[in-house]
């Protein structure tokens, strides 16, 4: 028997992340468990807001609030599902047995969640503009895209962390949103404050730098925290 080498070198983290992400998206394409449900929930929620608020058109604060609350609730569906297939079909153990960095799973799952969020927004934002938004969305788009991109990073990081935390609990469908929603309040707050002037009746106002900075700080802090604690959620 040959002497063990210093390290049984595994594949590079980048290639592992890529393999995990590819597997993730392939399973989603086959099962269509997350994105269609999220999009449908978002459009349904816009209809609910129409009747709940008794408004045909919204703008400003109200528009921003309706949009962001809807996106946040829709994202809960993906967060709830994120690790379920891995848990039920043994992918967790399969991954843990492989000689690869644990963080690769965090990165791949966060990237997958990010992709789902972007897909959701590609449906939900046009639907919102069509169904509820008073002012034309044209001028608001660049600022809105920037806010959504920054917010998606934070939701992906916190969502992945909470999904991993909740998936091995009983009643995970309850624990996930109950933990994730309060944690995401700063994202909602910043996102809504950023987009309220963009969606204002009298044409789009400027982006508030301090809210962009808050979102960026949130992304950074929770990105680092997720990276630091994620391993503890995997190992037994």
């Amino acid at each position: 028997m040959s002497a063990p080498g210093p390290t049984a070198a595994g594949p590079s983290t980048a290639s592992v992340v890529f393999a995990l992400l590819r597997k993730e998206l392939r399973v989603e394409l086959r099962t269509l468990e997350s994105v269609p449900a999220m999009s449908l929930l978002a459009v349904t929620t816009f209809v609910l807001f129409h009747f709940g608020l008794n408004r045909g058109r919204v703008d400003g604060d109200l528009a921003a609030g309706v949009l962001w609350v809807t996106l946040l609730f829709a994202s809960m569906l993906a967060i709830n599902r994120l690790f379920v297939a891995d848990l039920e079909q043994g992918g967790f153990d399969g991954f843990l047995l492989a000689p690869v960095s644990r963080s690769a799973l965090l990165l791949a799952k966060a990237a997958a969640l990010g992709v789902y969020l972007v897909a959701l927004e590609l449906v939900a934002v046009p639907a919102f503009a069509l169904l509820l938004l008073g002012p034309s969305i044209g001028g608001a788009l660049p600022g809105l895209v920037a806010s959504l991109a920054l917010a998606d990073l934070g939701i992906a990081a916190v969502g992945t962390l909470v999904a991993a935390l909740a998936v091995r609990t009983r009643a995970r469908d309850l624990i996930g949103p109950l933990v994730a929603l309060p944690l995401l309040i700063p994202v909602l707050l910043s996102g809504a404050r950023l987009s309220a002037p963009l969606l204002a009746g009298g044409g789009p106002g400027p982006l508030a730098g301090r809210w962009l900075a808050t979102l960026a700080l949130y992304d950074l802090v929770f990105g680092l925290i997720a990276y630091a604690v994620f391993d503890f959620l995997l190992e037994d």
């Binding site: 091995r168 009983r170 009643a171 624990i175 944690l183 925290i225 630091a228 503890f232 959620l233």
Partner: peptide, 29 residues
């Protein structure tokens, strides 16, 4: 949600570990 989270995890060791992860994340939050 800290107590419900703990309550929802049966393995005591995992319960402790997950609760600690929650406490750290919430502490930063």
């Amino acid at each position: 949600t800290y107590q419900p989270l703990r309550f929802a995890i049966e393995d005591p060791e995992r319960q402790a570990r997950y609760a600690s992860v929650f406490a750290v994340v919430a502490g930063v939050f």
